[in-house]
Amino acid sequence: MRTHFKIPRGMLDEIRADLSRPHSFAYERVGFVTCKVGKFDGEGWIILAANYHPVEDEDYVKDESVGAMIGSAAIRKMMQRAYDEPYSVVHVHMHEHSGRPSPSATDAREMAKLIPNFWNVRRNFPHAAVILSFDSMSGTVWDPSSKSRFAIDDFTVVGAPMQFIRTEHG
């Protein structure tokens, strides 16, 4: 399966700026991107970032064990958005370094709990979690037909200039 995530440069800049803002008690911020999707021949998804939705300050909850714990209100708002309009939901957060980020054990565990919830409102769509760094990104997609998760292969930052982040397949 091949998955390609595309995001306009302006939106990506806005997300990085938003996620860099300190929060009164959460160690890090997170956000969501609602996306339109298309299919590749055979298997695979093209996920196209449409709108960014920061998680509001009051929607974080105190939890010492993880950096950013968001409450059910934040998740409910996103589920409503994907219910109202056919959207794929992509969770975003940022690791404060350059180069390709990789998920921590906590990231992997929390996302495996969170992301499949969006199938309750949009069951034929892929949903995903993307980790940004200062200059790169990586991600995981939950595929609706196999109900499995896969690494996102390709990322394109759409703007002038373009940025292509590709996973090489031998």
Binding site: C35, K36, V37, K39, L48, N51, P86, N124
Partner: peptide
């Protein structure tokens, strides 16, 4: 019109 005219319009 963005974002309506993105992706596959028949996917629901």
């Amino acid at each position: 019109a963005y974002p309506i005219e993105l992706g596959d319009p028949f996917l629901k």
